[in-house]
Computed example of a mutant assay.
Amino acid sequence: MDSKTLRSEPSVLIITNMGPKPSAPFQGQFVTAQVTGLDAINPGYHFMRWHADSRLNRLLKYPVFLLDFIWRFILSRRTYSVVHVHFFYPTIWLALLYRLFRNPKAKIIVTCHGSDIYKYQSPGFWYRWCADKVQHWIFTSEALKNRFSLPCSPSTVLSAGIADSFARETPLELASKTIDLLYVGSLDFNKGIDRLIGLLPALTTKKIVIAGAGPWLSKLQQAAAPFPNVSILGPQTASELAGLYRKARCFISVSRHESFGLVMAEAMACHTPVVATYTDGAAAQIQQGVNGYLVAQHSESNSNSQTEQQVLAGLLAALEQLWQLPAAGYQHMQLEARAWAEQCLVSDVVSKLICLYPKV
């Protein structure tokens, strides 16, 4: 890209309230990956740099986040014409402050990731007032967009993006896989760790690997102690995750709510099929019997909600169905999973954002 092209590009400031912390050292890394991919337009980037698990941090992290933003960007000489907010509320307030004090003509783009919509199903006055100030909306899935109860035109559906390095992993044939079941992600109630615990007694003959951290870690460790077939790892780097995905016969997602679920896309990029509970994110990615299996669960929009025992039974049935596939059928599912994940690569996401910014 030559200097003339660079001068014609809008100046972009990216803001997110996500950031790494001890219990989630890779939190928000998908936003960082987008920023890195956008290096050619040299975007500004503000994330929650002071982020921990202490009570003091929970009380003061947003005031510090705001003061840090004022110092770094409102008092800065550099001016941005586009402010891209990741996670709508309350992060949007920083974008509105920037427009008020630095550039009244700045355009605001918002990427909604899930709980910034799920937690505001009956949006209050200030949520609605802020939403009215947005010029363009991005949703990580079509289903998430449909859950948004306010006007959101114009809008785009776009994955948050997974590292291109996952797509460089060569596939392992079924006989060479050494992990029967892999889980990667936060260890909390919404991610369904209680469900994962509930599956353990029925899977004593399977090699299970769980990678992640979160508030349910001690409960998981206690529940898994009687099962030598279960390995619990801490948070992993992208290269370490790629190795795990590649070795796994199946990746599992047991979330109650999921707007997209990048770990499912990462697994599929490494030629690993997925079994998942039905969420917005899983439904957007999994084609039943093609690149994985979906299992029904409770949903606000589903009158045929499943009990937890039915969810566990459905998960076990789907896992057995996948594990019993012949080598040729499993290989076909691997290839379908890999082909689908192409559209989630961060390079593809970044190219679409570069086209979107000037239009806004």
Score class of each variant (00 low, 15 high):
P326A: 10
L199T: 08
I92E: 07
A283N: 11
L158K: 03
F148W: 08
N103M: 03
Q297L: 00
Q287L: 09
W216Q: 14
A282H: 09
F148Q: 12
V82I: 15
T279W: 09
K133E: 14
P201K: 08
A211C: 14
Y330P: 07
F166Q: 02
A283C: 06
E336M: 12
A211T: 05
L96T: 04
R49P: 01
M18S: 13
R55L: 12
L196C: 01
A267H: 04
K145V: 00
D116L: 10
T36E: 15
Q34C: 09
L199W: 02
G28K: 10
K359W: 00
K177A: 08
C250Y: 01
L150I: 12
A339R: 15
R77W: 05
W216M: 15
A238K: 13
L144M: 14
A223W: 10
A225M: 13
S23K: 10
Q288Y: 01
T205K: 13
S239D: 14
F88K: 10
R58L: 11
W216C: 12
R102A: 08
R55A: 13
F125L: 14
R249S: 14
D280W: 09
F125R: 15
V311Y: 09
A313D: 15
E320R: 14
F69I: 07
N42Q: 13
W137E: 01
V82S: 05
T277Y: 01
S141M: 12
G19N: 07
K359V: 14
E342Q: 15
Y62A: 06
A327N: 12
S351V: 03
L312A: 06
W126Y: 11
Q29K: 14
G281S: 10
G234K: 07
L356T: 11
N302F: 06
M268T: 03
I108G: 03
G19K: 10
L150F: 10
V263H: 00
A225R: 14
S299W: 02
G212Q: 01
W50R: 13
S255Y: 08
A160K: 01
G161W: 05
H271W: 15
R249F: 00
G289C: 07
N291M: 05
T170L: 12
R78C: 04
L60A: 13
V157Y: 06
T32C: 05
P22A: 09
E308G: 00
L353E: 01
A52W: 07
Q310N: 06
Q222F: 06
H136W: 08
L66R: 04
Y62C: 02
T237R: 11
P228Y: 08
C112I: 00
R77P: 02
A248G: 08
G28A: 10
S141Q: 11
G124A: 03
F251W: 07
D194G: 07
Y293G: 00
L325Y: 05
V31L: 11
A265E: 08
V82D: 02
I232K: 02
S115M: 12
D280M: 12
W129G: 00
R195A: 06
L312G: 09
W216H: 12
K107L: 02
T272E: 03
L319Y: 06
P25V: 04
D164K: 05
A224M: 04
Q288I: 02
A24K: 13
S176G: 04
T279D: 09
I286W: 04
W71F: 11
L315T: 09
I138W: 09
S159L: 02
P90V: 07
M48F: 10
S76Q: 10
E336K: 12
R102K: 15
P20D: 05
P326M: 01
A213L: 04
